[in-house]
C-alpha cells in the first residue's frame, strides 16, 4: 500500500488554545486603557508604547539569537505584552532613552537571564519599572497633568504634577484631614482616566472592561484580581472605619494608582502567579495587604509594584505547599 499513517499516543486532538492566542487576548484587553491614555495624554502615550514594545521585541530576539543561541520566540507575542505593560507603568513624559533602558532590564534581566518565556520568577515589566523608579526617581514620579483637570492642591504647575496618591499622602502627612481635601478628588475623573499617573493605569472603567474580556475569553480566572482588590478594600476599609479623617476610603484606594492595572494585568501574569485557586487566593491577599501597608505607612505613595514582586518571590513556595484537593479526598455530598 499505501500512505503512511501517523502513530502517536492519545489524546489525538488538541484544543484551539495557544500561547499566542492568549497573549493576543491580553493585548486586546489592554486596548481600551490604551485608547483612553491616548485621549488623555495625546501622542506621547503612543510614542512611549511604541518604543517600549519595539525595544522589548528587539532585545528578546537579539538575546535569544546571539547570547542564548536559541530560536527567537518573539512570535508568541509575550515580548509585546511585556512591552505594553511596561509602557503602561510609566509616566508619559518619561524620556524615550529611559524607556529603552527599562525595556532592556525587563527583557534582559527580568526574563531572558532566567531562560526566557515561562522561566522567570518575577514579572518582567515590573522588574523594568522598579529599576527605572529607583534609578530615575524624579522623572518616574513626575506626571503630566491631563488637560482640563484641576491641578491638584493648586500648588503645582499646570503641566506636571503628582499622582492623586502622592498628593493625598503629602496632604495627610502635612496635617490635613480627608475632609480638607475631599473637594479636590473627583471619582468621575478616576473612572474615566482624567488624572495624573502612569498612563496605562489611569482609566478604571477601561481596565475593568479589559478584565471582563479576559474573563469572557477564559484567559484568566477571577481569583487573583478579586482577592487583590478585595483585600485592599477590606484592609483599607477597616482603617477608614477606625479613623475616617486620616485614612482614605476603600473606594479611593481601589480607583487610584496601579491598583486595577496591577490586580488585573500584572498580578495575573501566568508565569509568576500560583498554579492552584487556593494558591491564587493566598497570593492575592498578600499583594492586597502589602500594597495598603506601603501606601499607608511606607515611604512610597504607591506599593502595587513592590507588592506584586514580593509575592512573586513567594509563588514557588505556594506551589510547593498548596495542593489542589485531590479527587477522592472530598466527602460524599448530600443527595
Amino acid at each position: 500500500m499505501e500512505k503512511k499513517l501517523v502513530i502517536a499516543p492519545s489524546p489525538h486532538i488538541h484544543g484551539n488554545m495557544t500561547t499566542t492566542r492568549l497573549m493576543r487576548d491580553v493585548l486586546i484587553a489592554l486596548l481600551p486603557a490604551f485608547i483612553v491614555s491616548v485621549v488623555v495624554y495625546g501622542v506621547s502615550a503612543v510614542i512611549i508604547t511604541a518604543v517600549s514594545v519595539a525595544s522589548c521585541v528587539l532585545f528578546e530576539s537579539l538575546i535569544s539569537r546571539f547570547l542564548l543561541g536559541k530560536r527567537a520566540t518573539i512570535g508568541d507575542l509575550s515580548a509585546v505584552v511585556t512591552g505594553v505593560l511596561l509602557a503602561f507603568n510609566l509616566p508619559s513624559s518619561l524620556p524615550v532613552w529611559m524607556v529603552v533602558i527599562g525595556a532592556l532590564v525587563a527583557i534582559g534581566v527580568g526574563k531572558m537571564s532566567f531562560g526566557g518565556l515561562g522561566c522567570n520568577p518575577f514579572n518582567p515589566a515590573l522588574v523594568g519599572r522598579v529599576f527605572l523608579l529607583i534609578s530615575f526617581p524624579v522623572q518616574m514620579t513626575t506626571f503630566p497633568t491631563p488637560a482640563g483637570v484641576n491641578a491638584l492642591g493648586g500648588a503645582v504647575d499646570a503641566v506636571s504634577g503628582p499622582t492623586i496618591l502622592s498628593f493625598v499622602r503629602g496632604a495627610l502627612k502635612g496635617g490635613m484631614t480627608t475632609a480638607d481635601i475631599a473637594d479636590q478628588i473627583s471619582y468621575g475623573d478616576m473612572l474615566l482616566g482624567f488624572k495624573a499617573g502612569s498612563f496605562g493605569e489611569v482609566a478604571a472603567l477601561a481596565l475593568l472592561l479589559g478584565f471582563a474580556y479576559l474573563l469572557y475569553r477564559k484567559v484568566i480566572t477571577w481569583h487573583v484580581p478579586v482577592f487583590v482588590l478585595g483585600t485592599m478594600f477590606v484592609f483599607s476599609g477597616l482603617l477608614w472605619l477606625i479613623d475616617p479623617l486620616h485614612y482614605m476610603n476603600p473606594v479611593f484606594q481601589i480607583l487610584t494608582g496601579g491598583a486595577l492595572l496591577g490586580a488585573i494585568f500584572m498580578a495575573t501574569d501566568y508565569v509568576t502567579s500560583p498554579m492552584t485557586h487556593k494558591g491564587m487566593a493566598i497570593y492575592g491577599i498578600g499583594i492586597g495587604l502589602i500594597t495598603i501597608l506601603i501606601r499607608v505607612w511606607g515611604s512610597y505613595p504607591e506599593g502595587m509594584s513592590f507588592a506584586i514582586l514580593i509575592m512573586n518571590a513567594v509563588v514557588p513556595l505556594i506551589n510547593k505547599y498548596v495542593k489542589p484537593k485531590r479527587f477522592g479526598a472530598v466527602t460524599a455530598k448530600k443527595k
Partner: peptide
C-alpha cells in the same frame, strides 16, 4: 488533526491543573 502542534515553553498558565478531573498537577 492528525499532526500534533509544535510544543513551546510551559507558561505556567495553570489550565492543566484546572481541567484535571482527578485534581492532579
Amino acid at each position: 488533526e492528525a499532526l500534533r502542534p509544535v510544543p513551546g515553553n510551559c507558561i505556567k498558565c495553570a489550565k492543566c491543573v484546572s481541567v484535571c478531573p482527578m485534581a492532579l498537577e
